[in-house]
């Protein structure tokens, strides 16, 4: 007869990840969709709920942890990646998620964002990009377009915006993706991919702020327009878009991307084929901007690279292997010593 059988844990469901707190985002906010999709994906991962931690900074998006029935910390403005790094290094077995926004992650916390990417600490960063400061009621953000009229830029913003994906790629991001709140199924797919990535998974999520920047992404989310204005990336598939799948992206002789009509201006073989492991291609895709180009969504880059947190523990093991486990008495008595009798 076998000893105590392992307890059978029923598989978790979306409901298990919903906390008892009332969700207090504005009605119609894109954040609801993101929350729902994360709660949908997490049960699939087979990770015990207690091993999941969501850390956020400050901003509308950073209320996220309160609504997740996991461990969570709503910290201070911009610092979530730093806090998450300390947690992940101390406890590598945890699944660490960061919820941040364009202000939190790119303005006040920009430094931590680039450094966590550079180190490739194993965590998922969901950057809700609504191109506006919502919580402080409507000032332009580091992703707002030049000329944007806001509470703090009544004559139009003069600031050139960041492109979050170019920043992430430039910082050495090993998983860089974009999704949109308006396409939940696709968002779920990207979240699932991110969840399985070892290293920093950076997802920019275009998120509509219904109050202060409503319709910022309509050009590529409206059903009528989106087949022409956004490009869904699939690894190994040609970069084709358009209602009739009749448009492609190719490189011209100057190695710049251009849109061409498949059939009329060239054949499908000229079309770039998506390859998530190509850094060059990721750069080209990150430079595709409207109105000249469709906006790519999906996984721009996914490569395998050593993670910082694993490295820390490997090095520790290596030193322990060479020097043996530390002995405190020996440590305190190390160096030149002498005895007074």
């Amino acid at each position: 007869m076998s000893a105590n059988p392992l307890p059978v844990t029923p598989p978790l469901t979306k409901k298990d990840f919903q906390s008892d707190q009332d969700v207090r985002w504005c009605p119609g906010c894109g954040d609801y969709v993101i929350l729902a999709q994360v709660q949908r994906v997490l049960p699939e991962l087979g990770i015990p709920r207690e091993n999941i931690v969501v850390i956020s900074g400050i901003g509308c998006s950073s209320r996220f942890p309160y609504y997740m029935n996991t461990y969570g910390m709503h910290s201070i403005h911009g610092r979530a990646p730093a806090i998450a790094t300390g947690l992940k290094v101390a406890r590598p077995e945890l699944s660490v998620w960061v919820a941040t926004g364009d202000g939190d992650g790119l303005s006040i916390g920009g430094n931590h964002t680039i450094h966590v990417l550079r180190r490739n600490v194993d965590m998922k960063i969901l950057l809700f990009n609504n191109r506006i400061y919502g919580l402080t009621k409507g000032q332009y953000s580091p992703t707002s377009q030049v000329g944007m009229k806001s509470k703090s830029s009544p004559y139009g913003s003069l600031d050139a915006p960041f492109d979050p994906l170019r920043l992430a790629l430039g910082a050495g991001g090993t998983f860089v993706a974009r999704a949109v709140d308006a396409e939940p199924a696709h968002l779920t797919e990207v979240l699932r991919r991110a969840a399985h990535h070892k290293g920093t998974a950076f997802i920019e999520i275009y998120q509509n702020c219904v109050v202060f920047n409503d319709g910022a992404f309509d050009y590529m989310t409206e059903k009528a327009a989106r087949e022409e204005t956004r490009l869904v990336l699939t690894h190994g598939k040609p970069l084709v878009f358009g209602k009739a799948k009749d448009k492609g992206i190719r490189l011209n002789p100057k190695l710049e991307p251009e849109v061409f009509q498949i059939g009329r201006e060239g054949d499908l073989s000229q079309c770039l084929v998506h390859d998530e492991t190509s850094e060059t291609l990721a750069w080209i895709l990150a430079h595709l901007q409207p109105p000249k180009f469709p906006t790519p969504v999906g996984v721009f880059r996914a490569v395998s690279a050593p993670t910082y947190d694993a490295g820390v523990h490997e090095q520790e093991e290596e030193v322990r292997g060479k020097k043996g486990a530390g002995d405190l008495a020996k440590l305190l008595g190390s160096g030149e010593t002498w005895t007074v009798s």
Partner: peptide, 29 residues
């Protein structure tokens, strides 16, 4: 002192220094 269970994290700035320490304390270190 890696073989003593000591982790040192040279952070990107002073704020990340204390931020990472808060994260580690939350994790039980």
């Amino acid at each position: 002192l890696k073989n003593y269970g000591v982790t040192t994290f040279q952070a990107e700035d002073e704020i990340a220094g204390i931020g990472s320490a808060i994260g580690a304390a939350y994790g039980g270190a």
